[in-house]
């Protein structure tokens, strides 16, 4: 691509928001106004502003003298040495030298001045009081095991840099709820109190259980014979495995209730139920014996499971 093409498509008048009949003084004033607004050192870390500043400087360069301006207006712009478009020794922006902490930035820490102290250290109210303010709150997020949120648990967690706390995870707590630690946030100013810390709970999903209000639900696969004949099966719970009686003639979707194996209500000290949803699963391979048996049986026992869906 012809490097001139980019320049020729660029409209410096539009960038500086001036008309094509603006005086050189107008150009200078327009640039000044925009430079104050878009200088990257006055807006550190803002990439949109930085991009805009490059455009503004490009526009200024093209119009800054009557000679350059005339050349641009005639479409005869030439790359010149020392233009903003040339690579070479580029003075870095000041904020770039302070990224990660520079000598001038760290001077705040060395004086031991909190940012607000340095602004307000000589500030006094009408009653001659010093400046006091509460510290800010801090927010964190913590993933908690499903079982711990259902039954409750005590866990040890660490705040940075190395502050440990024993946290009581309340039974029944849901994702999005916050635990509050009073006085564990940012320190206050003057005689102000420290802020609080809040931990937002994120419940880790269980591969087996699903919470529905105060109940837990799970899907249980049963065999053809268990479905037809019924029987005892062992199922998982959040504590020890449980023996469940499958009634004869059980069908897919049938819900069996196991009392008091759901979510704990810490106030009432009661638990919801565990709802087991049955799913009849045929053998992976239908052997010839089963096939023959079903063929014979079905000749004398006609039933249509889709009867209720007939139009």
């Amino acid at each position: 691509m012809n490097p001139m093409q980019g320049i020729m498509a660029f409209d410096p008048y539009a960038v500086l928001k001036i008309s094509k009949t603006a005086t050189q003084g107008d150009i200078k004033n327009a640039y000044r106004k925009l430079a104050k607004k878009y200088h990257p050192d006055l807006n550190p870390g803002n990439s949109k502003v930085a991009k805009k500043f490059v455009e503004i400087n490009k526009a200024k360069y093209l119009l800054e003298t009557p000679e350059k301006r005339e050349k641009f207006d005639r479409g005869e712009f030439e790359r010149a040495e020392g233009s903003p478009f040339e690579s070479g020794t580029q003075t870095p922006f000041y904020h770039e030298t302070q990224k990660g902490g520079g000598r001038y930035t760290f001077s705040f820490e060395e004086t031991g001045n909190d940012i607000f102290e340095s602004l307000f250290k000589n500030y006094k109210t009408g009653e001659n009081r010093e400046f006091n303010a509460s510290g800010g709150d801090q927010y964190y997020r913590m993933e908690v095991e499903f079982k711990d949120t259902i039954l409750g648990a005590a866990r040890e967690i660490t705040f940075p840099p190395n502050k440990k706390f024993k946290v009581k995870i309340p039974a029944g707590i849901e994702s999005g709820k916050k635990l509050r630690f009073a006085g564990e946030g940012s320190p206050g100013l003057g005689k102000g109190n420290a802020g609080d810390s809040y931990i937002e709970i994120q419940v880790k999903p269980s591969p087996v259980f699903r919470r529905v209000g105060d109940d837990l639900e799970m899907e249980l696969a049963i065999s053809l014979s268990e479905a037809v004949l019924g029987g005892d099966v062992e199922i998982l719970s959040l504590e020890k495995p449980i023996k469940l009686k499958v009634p004869p003639g059980a069908n897919t979707g049938q819900r069996l209730r196991v009392k008091s194996k759901g979510v704990m209500d810490p106030a009432l000290k009661t638990r919801g139920n565990l709802i087991v949803i049955l799913k009849v699963v045929l053998p992976l391979k239908i052997d010839p014996e089963l096939k023959e048996m079903i063929q014979q049986w079905s000749q004398n026992h006609i039933y249509n499971p889709r009867e209720e869906f007939k139009g």
């Binding site: 550190p44 870390g45 904020h95 302070q98 990660g100 902490g101 520079g102 001038y104 930035t105 001077s107 705040f108 820490e109 940012i115 340095s118 602004l119 801090q138 927010y139 964190y140 997020r141 913590m142 705040f159 940075p160 840099p161």
Partner: peptide
């Protein structure tokens, strides 16, 4: 300088929250 100092503090805080 104060803006740069505040940015540095915020970035340190963000890094701490990421650890959490």
């Amino acid at each position: 300088d104060q803006i740069n100092y505040l940015r540095l503090k915020m970035e340190t805080q963000k890094a701490n929250v990421k650890i959490k």
